[in-house]
Computed example of a mutant assay.
Amino acid sequence: MRPSKTDLARTTLQAHGGTLGMRERRALILCDGQRGLDELVQLLGQDAPLLIQRLVRDGYLAASSSATATAPSPSPATSTAPTGPRRSRVAARIYLSGMLELHRDTEARHHRNRLQSRLDDDAMLQALADALRFLEGRVAATLAQRIRERLVEALPLEDVPSLHARMASQDDAVALT
């Protein structure tokens, strides 16, 4: 399948607004009739087939009838997958590094340098938890909550329970002192 933009897609992209989110707009830009589904999956993530199908169904993309027949149909397990941005430890690390950069003191610089050093998975999760705890102690409660939510959105799903456990163990250690 090599999806291409329809007139509706071109009009929507030129309008710089509308009902499409950034992810859908990016998909429309990348669907130039030259890229195949495999390449789009590499660029957009594993849920690209569902995104492309939805854009075809809504009239933004066109695909040949034979290509549409070979497109994978969403299974119940696949259709519940999140369609937001891809999750990664790198994205989480970059996000928290940016938040730490706003605090121009030695301790914030220490946490930022630790996040930017090459760490194994376990050490990276601990560094993320430590940096988050530091930020939560420095900012208003509402901002701290938003930072925590954005961090959880950026982390791979399998890392979220570990981060929560590390944060809980830090809370327990603080309560004991």
Rank of each mutant, 00 (worst) to 15 (best):
L96C: 03
A165H: 15
S162M: 15
E153W: 00
H103K: 14
L163Q: 14
R89E: 13
Q116P: 02
D159N: 08
G98I: 05
T142W: 01
A165M: 12
P76V: 10
S97D: 07
A131K: 06
R104E: 14
A108F: 08
V56C: 04
L61S: 03
D105E: 15
L132D: 00
D130V: 04
S73T: 10
P76I: 03
V41E: 15
E39P: 06
V41Y: 03
A77P: 03
H164N: 12
Q126T: 11
L163G: 07
Y60D: 05
R118K: 13
H111A: 06
T70C: 12
A140C: 02
R89I: 11
G137S: 10
A63D: 10
E153F: 00
E153Y: 00
L143R: 00
R93C: 06
L96I: 11
L151D: 01
T80N: 06
P72W: 09
P74V: 04
N113L: 13
Q46H: 14
R104M: 14
D159H: 03
R89M: 08
R150Q: 15
P161N: 04
I147A: 00
M124V: 05
P76E: 09
Q116I: 04
P74R: 03
I94E: 11
A131C: 10
S64Q: 12
A92G: 09
D122K: 12
Y95R: 06
Q126W: 15
L157W: 00
E158L: 14
T80G: 05
R57P: 03
S64N: 10
A123E: 14
R150E: 15
I94Q: 09
R54N: 04
R146P: 00
L61C: 06
I147T: 05
I147C: 01
T70H: 14
G98A: 02
L100I: 02
R87P: 04
E149L: 04
S73Q: 09
T142E: 07
L50G: 09
A81G: 05
L102R: 09
G84H: 09
A48C: 10
A67N: 08
S66I: 13
L50H: 01
L40H: 05
D120W: 05
M124Y: 06
H164A: 14
V160H: 01
G84I: 01
R89F: 03
A48L: 07
L163D: 12
A81W: 10
N113R: 15
P76G: 08
H164C: 13
G84P: 10
G84C: 11
T68H: 04
T68Q: 14
D130L: 11
Q126I: 15
P49D: 03
A127W: 00
H110W: 15
L61F: 05
V41I: 14
V160W: 02
D105Q: 11
G59M: 09
L155H: 01
H111V: 02
A154W: 00
